[in-house]
Design a protein around this nucleic acid. Structure first.
Lengths: 214, 214
DNA sequence: GGCTACCGTTACCGCAAGTAACATGTAAGT
DNA sequence: ACTTACATGTTACTTGCGGTAACGGTAGCC
Protein backbone atom coordinates (compact mmCIF):
# COMPACT_ATOMS: atom_id res chain seq x y z
CA UNK A 1 0.00 0.00 0.00
CA UNK A 2 0.89 3.56 -0.29
CA UNK A 3 0.50 4.49 3.36
CA UNK A 4 2.95 1.89 4.62
CA UNK A 5 5.42 2.94 1.98
CA UNK A 6 4.94 6.53 2.98
CA UNK A 7 5.57 5.80 6.61
CA UNK A 8 8.62 3.75 5.76
CA UNK A 9 10.01 6.58 3.74
CA UNK A 10 9.02 9.05 6.37
CA UNK A 11 10.87 6.98 8.90
CA UNK A 12 13.98 6.80 6.81
CA UNK A 13 13.78 10.50 5.99
CA UNK A 14 13.47 11.29 9.67
CA UNK A 15 16.49 9.21 10.50
CA UNK A 16 18.45 10.93 7.77
CA UNK A 17 17.28 14.26 9.05
CA UNK A 18 18.52 13.47 12.51
CA UNK A 19 21.88 12.38 11.13
CA UNK A 20 22.17 15.60 9.20
CA UNK A 21 21.28 17.63 12.25
CA UNK A 22 23.93 15.87 14.27
CA UNK A 23 26.50 16.56 11.61
CA UNK A 24 25.43 20.19 11.45
CA UNK A 25 25.70 20.34 15.20
CA UNK A 26 29.26 19.10 15.11
CA UNK A 27 30.28 21.61 12.46
CA UNK A 28 28.54 24.54 14.05
CA UNK A 29 30.03 23.75 17.43
CA UNK A 30 33.47 23.41 15.87
CA UNK A 31 33.51 26.23 13.33
CA UNK A 32 31.10 28.57 15.01
CA UNK A 33 27.81 29.71 13.54
CA UNK A 34 29.56 31.00 10.44
CA UNK A 35 29.73 27.45 9.20
CA UNK A 36 28.79 27.22 5.55
CA UNK A 37 26.24 24.89 4.10
CA UNK A 38 29.02 23.30 2.11
CA UNK A 39 30.98 22.57 5.26
CA UNK A 40 27.96 21.03 6.94
CA UNK A 41 27.18 18.95 3.90
CA UNK A 42 30.78 17.77 3.76
CA UNK A 43 30.71 16.78 7.42
CA UNK A 44 27.57 14.79 6.76
CA UNK A 45 29.30 13.11 3.84
CA UNK A 46 26.94 14.51 1.23
CA UNK A 47 26.44 17.70 -0.75
CA UNK A 48 24.46 20.88 -0.47
CA UNK A 49 21.29 20.18 -2.40
CA UNK A 50 20.41 17.38 -0.03
CA UNK A 51 20.52 19.75 2.88
CA UNK A 52 18.22 22.05 1.01
CA UNK A 53 15.86 19.23 0.23
CA UNK A 54 15.58 18.48 3.92
CA UNK A 55 15.56 21.93 5.47
CA UNK A 56 14.44 24.28 2.74
CA UNK A 57 17.01 26.92 3.39
CA UNK A 58 19.66 27.85 5.86
CA UNK A 59 17.15 29.36 8.21
CA UNK A 60 15.29 26.07 8.28
CA UNK A 61 18.39 24.19 9.27
CA UNK A 62 19.18 26.80 11.90
CA UNK A 63 15.66 26.63 13.28
CA UNK A 64 15.74 22.86 13.49
CA UNK A 65 19.11 22.98 15.18
CA UNK A 66 18.07 25.66 17.61
CA UNK A 67 14.84 23.88 18.46
CA UNK A 68 16.69 20.81 19.68
CA UNK A 69 18.83 22.73 22.11
CA UNK A 70 16.09 25.10 23.09
CA UNK A 71 13.72 22.30 23.94
CA UNK A 72 16.32 20.58 26.03
CA UNK A 73 17.10 23.70 28.00
CA UNK A 74 13.47 24.56 28.49
CA UNK A 75 12.74 21.14 29.85
CA UNK A 76 15.48 21.46 32.43
CA UNK A 77 14.22 24.88 33.43
CA UNK A 78 10.66 23.68 33.75
CA UNK A 79 11.80 20.98 36.12
CA UNK A 80 13.56 23.46 38.37
CA UNK A 81 10.69 25.88 38.16
CA UNK A 82 8.02 23.35 39.03
CA UNK A 83 9.82 21.73 41.91
CA UNK A 84 7.81 21.55 45.12
CA UNK A 85 9.83 23.98 47.17
CA UNK A 86 9.62 27.45 48.54
CA UNK A 87 9.58 30.31 46.11
CA UNK A 88 13.05 31.62 46.65
CA UNK A 89 14.48 28.13 46.48
CA UNK A 90 12.73 27.55 43.20
CA UNK A 91 13.99 30.82 41.79
CA UNK A 92 17.53 30.04 42.81
CA UNK A 93 17.32 26.55 41.43
CA UNK A 94 16.07 27.87 38.12
CA UNK A 95 18.76 30.52 37.87
CA UNK A 96 21.35 27.93 38.74
CA UNK A 97 20.03 25.50 36.17
CA UNK A 98 20.24 28.11 33.49
CA UNK A 99 23.70 29.24 34.43
CA UNK A 100 24.90 25.66 34.75
CA UNK A 101 23.64 24.97 31.25
CA UNK A 102 25.38 27.88 29.63
CA UNK A 103 28.49 27.15 31.65
CA UNK A 104 28.57 23.52 30.63
CA UNK A 105 28.15 24.15 26.93
CA UNK A 106 29.11 27.70 26.11
CA UNK A 107 29.48 26.85 22.44
CA UNK A 108 25.84 25.88 22.25
CA UNK A 109 24.89 28.92 24.22
CA UNK A 110 26.81 31.29 21.99
CA UNK A 111 25.27 29.65 18.99
CA UNK A 112 21.77 30.13 20.29
CA UNK A 113 22.23 33.65 21.59
CA UNK A 114 25.01 35.30 19.66
CA UNK A 115 25.29 33.62 16.31
CA UNK A 116 27.58 35.16 13.74
CA UNK A 117 30.50 35.87 16.01
CA UNK A 118 31.94 32.42 16.10
CA UNK A 119 35.24 31.88 14.38
CA UNK A 120 37.95 34.29 13.32
CA UNK A 121 36.19 34.83 10.04
CA UNK A 122 33.06 36.57 11.19
CA UNK A 123 31.57 36.85 7.74
CA UNK A 124 27.89 36.37 7.36
CA UNK A 125 26.68 33.91 9.91
CA UNK A 126 23.32 32.44 10.43
CA UNK A 127 20.27 34.50 10.50
CA UNK A 128 20.30 35.63 14.05
CA UNK A 129 17.53 37.77 15.44
CA UNK A 130 14.90 35.85 13.62
CA UNK A 131 15.79 32.69 15.46
CA UNK A 132 17.64 33.56 18.59
CA UNK A 133 14.90 35.67 20.09
CA UNK A 134 12.47 32.79 20.23
CA UNK A 135 14.42 31.15 23.01
CA UNK A 136 14.23 34.21 25.23
CA UNK A 137 10.63 34.74 24.28
CA UNK A 138 9.63 31.19 25.00
CA UNK A 139 11.40 31.29 28.31
CA UNK A 140 9.70 34.54 29.18
CA UNK A 141 6.26 33.23 28.35
CA UNK A 142 6.88 30.04 30.22
CA UNK A 143 8.00 31.88 33.31
CA UNK A 144 5.09 34.27 33.03
CA UNK A 145 2.67 31.37 33.10
CA UNK A 146 4.25 29.90 36.17
CA UNK A 147 4.20 33.23 37.93
CA UNK A 148 0.60 33.91 37.12
CA UNK A 149 -0.35 30.44 38.12
CA UNK A 150 1.42 30.43 41.42
CA UNK A 151 1.73 33.97 42.69
CA UNK A 152 -1.13 36.10 43.88
CA UNK A 153 -0.72 39.44 42.18
CA UNK A 154 -4.14 40.98 42.41
CA UNK A 155 -6.20 42.35 39.52
CA UNK A 156 -3.46 43.17 37.00
CA UNK A 157 -1.89 39.79 37.49
CA UNK A 158 -1.83 38.79 33.85
CA UNK A 159 0.06 41.85 32.73
CA UNK A 160 2.36 41.85 35.70
CA UNK A 161 3.20 38.20 35.30
CA UNK A 162 4.08 38.60 31.68
CA UNK A 163 6.15 41.71 32.17
CA UNK A 164 7.97 40.05 35.03
CA UNK A 165 8.45 36.82 33.16
CA UNK A 166 10.16 38.52 30.28
CA UNK A 167 12.00 40.88 32.57
CA UNK A 168 13.39 38.18 34.80
CA UNK A 169 14.44 36.07 31.86
CA UNK A 170 16.20 39.09 30.41
CA UNK A 171 17.92 39.72 33.68
CA UNK A 172 19.09 36.14 33.85
CA UNK A 173 20.23 36.23 30.28
CA UNK A 174 22.17 39.49 30.46
CA UNK A 175 23.77 38.70 33.78
CA UNK A 176 24.63 35.22 32.57
CA UNK A 177 26.16 36.56 29.42
CA UNK A 178 28.30 38.98 31.35
CA UNK A 179 29.26 36.33 33.87
CA UNK A 180 30.18 33.83 31.19
CA UNK A 181 32.45 36.37 29.59
CA UNK A 182 34.24 37.64 32.66
CA UNK A 183 33.77 34.92 35.22
CA UNK A 184 33.94 37.42 38.05
CA UNK A 185 32.60 35.03 40.64
CA UNK A 186 31.27 31.56 41.26
CA UNK A 187 27.95 30.43 39.93
CA UNK A 188 26.46 30.28 43.39
CA UNK A 189 27.50 33.84 44.12
CA UNK A 190 25.82 35.11 41.00
CA UNK A 191 22.69 33.14 41.74
CA UNK A 192 22.62 34.69 45.16
CA UNK A 193 23.20 38.20 43.87
CA UNK A 194 20.38 37.94 41.38
CA UNK A 195 17.99 36.39 43.82
CA UNK A 196 18.80 39.19 46.24
CA UNK A 197 18.00 41.69 43.53
CA UNK A 198 14.66 40.04 42.88
CA UNK A 199 14.02 39.96 46.57
CA UNK A 200 14.09 43.71 46.78
CA UNK A 201 17.48 44.28 48.26
CA UNK A 202 18.04 47.18 45.91
CA UNK A 203 15.06 48.94 47.40
CA UNK A 204 16.01 48.07 50.92
CA UNK A 205 19.63 49.18 50.82
CA UNK A 206 20.54 52.57 52.21
CA UNK A 207 22.10 55.47 50.40
CA UNK A 208 25.84 55.62 50.43
CA UNK A 209 27.33 58.33 52.57
CA UNK A 210 28.86 61.34 50.91
CA UNK A 211 26.54 60.99 47.94
CA UNK A 212 25.16 63.99 46.08
CA UNK A 213 22.58 66.35 47.45
CA UNK A 214 19.76 65.19 49.68
CA UNK B 1 53.81 72.88 7.43
CA UNK B 2 52.80 69.32 7.56
CA UNK B 3 50.82 69.49 10.77
CA UNK B 4 48.42 72.15 9.56
CA UNK B 5 47.92 70.23 6.37
CA UNK B 6 47.25 67.15 8.33
CA UNK B 7 44.66 68.80 10.49
CA UNK B 8 42.98 70.36 7.49
CA UNK B 9 42.78 67.05 5.77
CA UNK B 10 41.69 65.42 8.97
CA UNK B 11 38.93 67.93 9.25
CA UNK B 12 37.73 67.33 5.73
CA UNK B 13 37.98 63.58 6.18
CA UNK B 14 35.93 63.80 9.33
CA UNK B 15 33.26 65.81 7.62
CA UNK B 16 33.17 63.31 4.81
CA UNK B 17 32.96 60.53 7.32
CA UNK B 18 30.00 62.15 8.98
CA UNK B 19 28.26 62.58 5.64
CA UNK B 20 28.83 58.96 4.82
CA UNK B 21 27.49 57.89 8.17
CA UNK B 22 24.37 59.91 7.66
CA UNK B 23 23.84 58.36 4.28
CA UNK B 24 24.40 54.92 5.75
CA UNK B 25 21.93 55.76 8.45
CA UNK B 26 19.28 56.66 5.93
CA UNK B 27 19.77 53.48 3.98
CA UNK B 28 19.92 51.21 6.97
CA UNK B 29 16.81 52.74 8.45
CA UNK B 30 15.03 52.42 5.15
CA UNK B 31 16.19 49.04 3.88
CA UNK B 32 16.90 47.40 7.18
CA UNK B 33 20.26 46.14 8.32
CA UNK B 34 20.55 43.94 5.25
CA UNK B 35 21.54 46.99 3.28
CA UNK B 36 24.46 46.29 1.01
CA UNK B 37 27.62 48.35 0.88
CA UNK B 38 26.77 49.15 -2.70
CA UNK B 39 23.43 50.57 -1.71
CA UNK B 40 24.97 52.70 1.01
CA UNK B 41 27.64 53.96 -1.33
CA UNK B 42 25.01 54.80 -3.92
CA UNK B 43 22.97 56.73 -1.36
CA UNK B 44 26.08 58.68 -0.47
CA UNK B 45 26.67 59.37 -4.14
CA UNK B 46 29.95 57.50 -4.30
CA UNK B 47 31.20 53.94 -4.70
CA UNK B 48 32.21 51.10 -2.47
CA UNK B 49 35.98 51.45 -2.15
CA UNK B 50 35.56 54.83 -0.53
CA UNK B 51 33.45 53.32 2.18
CA UNK B 52 36.14 50.76 2.73
CA UNK B 53 38.83 53.42 2.90
CA UNK B 54 36.89 55.16 5.62
CA UNK B 55 35.60 52.27 7.68
CA UNK B 56 37.86 49.35 6.90
CA UNK B 57 35.13 46.81 6.49
CA UNK B 58 31.44 46.42 6.96
CA UNK B 59 31.86 45.79 10.64
CA UNK B 60 33.67 49.08 10.98
CA UNK B 61 30.84 50.95 9.36
CA UNK B 62 28.37 49.15 11.55
CA UNK B 63 30.38 49.93 14.64
CA UNK B 64 30.62 53.61 13.78
CA UNK B 65 26.93 53.72 13.04
CA UNK B 66 26.02 51.92 16.23
CA UNK B 67 28.28 54.10 18.31
CA UNK B 68 26.42 57.24 17.30
CA UNK B 69 23.08 55.95 18.39
CA UNK B 70 24.47 54.18 21.39
CA UNK B 71 26.17 57.31 22.65
CA UNK B 72 23.02 59.34 22.24
CA UNK B 73 20.94 56.83 24.13
CA UNK B 74 23.50 56.48 26.87
CA UNK B 75 23.63 60.20 27.39
CA UNK B 76 19.89 60.38 27.84
CA UNK B 77 20.00 57.50 30.28
CA UNK B 78 22.81 59.06 32.26
CA UNK B 79 20.77 62.19 32.68
CA UNK B 80 17.80 60.28 34.05
CA UNK B 81 20.01 58.15 36.22
CA UNK B 82 21.90 61.06 37.75
CA UNK B 83 18.93 63.26 38.44
CA UNK B 84 18.70 64.51 42.01
CA UNK B 85 15.67 62.55 43.08
CA UNK B 86 14.73 59.63 45.21
CA UNK B 87 15.92 56.24 44.14
CA UNK B 88 12.68 54.81 42.92
CA UNK B 89 11.92 57.96 41.01
CA UNK B 90 15.30 57.77 39.33
CA UNK B 91 14.80 54.14 38.45
CA UNK B 92 11.41 54.84 36.96
CA UNK B 93 12.72 57.82 35.05
CA UNK B 94 15.53 55.75 33.60
CA UNK B 95 13.25 52.91 32.59
CA UNK B 96 10.89 55.38 31.04
CA UNK B 97 13.67 57.12 29.17
CA UNK B 98 14.82 53.86 27.70
CA UNK B 99 11.35 52.74 26.73
CA UNK B 100 10.53 56.12 25.29
CA UNK B 101 13.65 55.96 23.16
CA UNK B 102 12.91 52.56 21.70
CA UNK B 103 9.30 53.54 21.24
CA UNK B 104 10.17 56.71 19.40
CA UNK B 105 12.60 55.12 16.99
CA UNK B 106 11.96 51.42 16.76
CA UNK B 107 13.89 51.22 13.53
CA UNK B 108 17.03 52.38 15.24
CA UNK B 109 16.35 50.08 18.12
CA UNK B 110 15.86 47.05 15.94
CA UNK B 111 19.00 47.91 14.09
CA UNK B 112 21.03 48.10 17.26
CA UNK B 113 19.58 45.06 18.94
CA UNK B 114 18.32 42.71 16.30
CA UNK B 115 20.16 43.39 13.11
CA UNK B 116 19.67 41.01 10.22
CA UNK B 117 15.94 40.74 10.44
CA UNK B 118 15.07 43.98 8.77
CA UNK B 119 13.44 43.80 5.38
CA UNK B 120 11.53 41.06 3.68
CA UNK B 121 14.74 39.67 2.26
CA UNK B 122 16.46 38.52 5.38
CA UNK B 123 19.63 37.58 3.57
CA UNK B 124 22.91 38.13 5.31
CA UNK B 125 22.71 41.23 7.39
CA UNK B 126 25.28 43.06 9.36
CA UNK B 127 27.49 41.37 11.79
CA UNK B 128 25.29 41.25 14.79
CA UNK B 129 26.44 39.82 18.06
CA UNK B 130 29.86 41.33 17.72
CA UNK B 131 28.42 44.81 17.78
CA UNK B 132 25.00 44.71 19.33
CA UNK B 133 26.19 43.34 22.63
CA UNK B 134 28.34 46.38 23.36
CA UNK B 135 25.31 48.56 23.91
CA UNK B 136 23.89 46.27 26.56
CA UNK B 137 27.32 45.81 28.05
CA UNK B 138 28.04 49.51 28.21
CA UNK B 139 24.67 50.19 29.74
CA UNK B 140 25.25 47.47 32.28
CA UNK B 141 28.65 48.80 33.29
CA UNK B 142 27.34 52.32 33.49
CA UNK B 143 24.48 51.32 35.70
CA UNK B 144 26.79 49.22 37.84
CA UNK B 145 28.97 52.24 38.50
CA UNK B 146 26.05 54.36 39.52
CA UNK B 147 24.77 51.65 41.81
CA UNK B 148 28.09 51.10 43.46
CA UNK B 149 28.61 54.79 43.84
CA UNK B 150 25.26 55.55 45.34
CA UNK B 151 23.95 52.49 47.09
CA UNK B 152 25.37 51.03 50.24
CA UNK B 153 25.73 47.34 49.60
CA UNK B 154 28.24 46.25 52.19
CA UNK B 155 31.45 44.33 51.55
CA UNK B 156 30.63 42.58 48.27
CA UNK B 157 29.36 45.81 46.80
CA UNK B 158 31.52 45.74 43.69
CA UNK B 159 30.37 42.35 42.59
CA UNK B 160 26.77 42.96 43.55
CA UNK B 161 26.65 46.26 41.75
CA UNK B 162 27.99 44.79 38.55
CA UNK B 163 25.76 41.76 38.62
CA UNK B 164 22.78 43.98 39.28
CA UNK B 165 23.77 46.51 36.69
CA UNK B 166 23.89 43.94 33.96
CA UNK B 167 20.88 42.13 35.30
CA UNK B 168 18.70 45.21 35.46
CA UNK B 169 19.74 46.31 32.01
CA UNK B 170 18.90 42.87 30.72
CA UNK B 171 15.53 43.02 32.39
CA UNK B 172 14.82 46.39 30.86
CA UNK B 173 15.94 45.20 27.47
CA UNK B 174 13.98 41.98 27.39
CA UNK B 175 10.84 43.49 28.79
CA UNK B 176 11.16 46.41 26.41
CA UNK B 177 11.62 44.12 23.47
CA UNK B 178 8.56 42.14 24.37
CA UNK B 179 6.56 45.28 25.01
CA UNK B 180 7.58 46.86 21.75
CA UNK B 181 6.46 43.76 19.90
CA UNK B 182 3.11 43.24 21.57
CA UNK B 183 2.23 46.61 23.06
CA UNK B 184 0.23 44.97 25.81
CA UNK B 185 0.05 48.10 27.93
CA UNK B 186 1.06 51.70 28.21
CA UNK B 187 4.62 52.74 28.80
CA UNK B 188 3.85 53.98 32.28
CA UNK B 189 2.27 50.68 33.21
CA UNK B 190 5.32 48.75 32.14
CA UNK B 191 7.59 51.11 33.99
CA UNK B 192 5.52 50.59 37.07
CA UNK B 193 5.50 46.82 36.71
CA UNK B 194 9.25 46.64 36.35
CA UNK B 195 9.91 49.01 39.21
CA UNK B 196 7.59 46.93 41.35
CA UNK B 197 9.57 43.87 40.44
CA UNK B 198 12.81 45.56 41.41
CA UNK B 199 11.20 46.72 44.60
CA UNK B 200 10.68 43.19 45.75
CA UNK B 201 7.01 42.75 45.07
CA UNK B 202 7.67 39.27 43.75
CA UNK B 203 9.06 38.27 47.12
CA UNK B 204 6.31 40.00 49.04
CA UNK B 205 3.39 38.55 47.13
CA UNK B 206 1.52 35.64 48.61
CA UNK B 207 1.03 32.20 47.10
CA UNK B 208 -2.03 31.73 45.04
CA UNK B 209 -4.74 29.62 46.55
CA UNK B 210 -5.30 26.15 45.17
CA UNK B 211 -1.74 25.81 44.05
CA UNK B 212 0.09 22.50 44.09
CA UNK B 213 1.18 20.70 47.22
CA UNK B 214 2.31 22.54 50.31
C1' DG C 1 12.68 -4.54 -20.64
C1' DG C 2 10.53 -0.11 -19.49
C1' DC C 3 8.50 3.36 -15.87
C1' DT C 4 8.50 5.87 -11.77
C1' DA C 5 10.36 7.70 -7.56
C1' DC C 6 14.09 8.61 -4.75
C1' DC C 7 18.89 9.76 -3.49
C1' DG C 8 22.75 11.80 -4.95
C1' DT C 9 25.83 14.45 -7.92
C1' DT C 10 28.00 18.32 -10.92
C1' DA C 11 27.72 22.63 -12.58
C1' DC C 12 25.81 26.71 -12.54
C1' DC C 13 23.42 31.63 -11.25
C1' DG C 14 23.13 35.76 -8.54
C1' DC C 15 24.85 38.60 -5.29
C1' DA C 16 27.54 40.74 -1.77
C1' DA C 17 32.10 41.58 0.56
C1' DG C 18 36.35 43.11 -0.24
C1' DT C 19 40.55 44.54 -3.31
C1' DA C 20 43.78 45.97 -7.06
C1' DA C 21 44.81 49.01 -10.42
C1' DC C 22 44.00 52.86 -12.63
C1' DA C 23 42.34 57.96 -13.33
C1' DT C 24 42.06 62.76 -11.82
C1' DG C 25 42.15 67.09 -9.38
C1' DT C 26 44.85 69.95 -6.48
C1' DA C 27 48.27 71.85 -3.56
C1' DA C 28 53.16 72.43 -2.51
C1' DG C 29 58.32 72.51 -3.87
C1' DT C 30 61.63 73.90 -7.37
C1' DA D 1 55.38 76.81 -15.44
C1' DC D 2 56.80 71.77 -14.40
C1' DT D 3 56.94 68.09 -11.43
C1' DT D 4 56.03 65.52 -7.41
C1' DA D 5 52.99 63.80 -4.01
C1' DC D 6 48.74 62.77 -2.23
C1' DA D 7 43.84 62.49 -1.47
C1' DT D 8 39.74 61.21 -3.90
C1' DG D 9 37.32 58.79 -6.87
C1' DT D 10 36.49 55.19 -10.44
C1' DT D 11 36.09 50.56 -13.00
C1' DA D 12 36.75 45.95 -12.99
C1' DC D 13 37.94 42.01 -10.70
C1' DT D 14 38.30 37.89 -7.27
C1' DT D 15 36.39 35.03 -3.85
C1' DG D 16 32.99 32.75 -1.51
C1' DC D 17 28.36 31.85 -0.10
C1' DG D 18 23.31 30.78 -0.56
C1' DG D 19 20.43 28.65 -3.53
C1' DT D 20 18.89 25.96 -7.78
C1' DA D 21 18.47 23.45 -12.23
C1' DA D 22 19.54 19.73 -14.67
C1' DC D 23 21.45 15.43 -14.96
C1' DG D 24 22.72 10.26 -13.22
C1' DG D 25 22.35 6.07 -10.98
C1' DT D 26 19.48 2.41 -8.56
C1' DA D 27 15.81 0.28 -6.45
C1' DG D 28 11.13 -1.69 -6.99
C1' DC D 29 6.76 -2.39 -9.74
C1' DC D 30 4.12 -3.37 -14.15
Amino acid sequence: METTQRTDQQRSADRRRRELLEAADRVVLRDGPGASMNAIAAEAGITKPILYRHFGDKGGLYAALAKRHTDALLEALRAALDAPAERRERVEATLDTYLAAIEARPQVYRFLMHPSEGGPQSDQGFDVGTHSTPLLRRMGEELAEVIEERVDLGPASHLLARAWGHGIVGMMHAAGDWWLGERPCSRAELVHALADLLWGRLAAAGDKLGGPAF
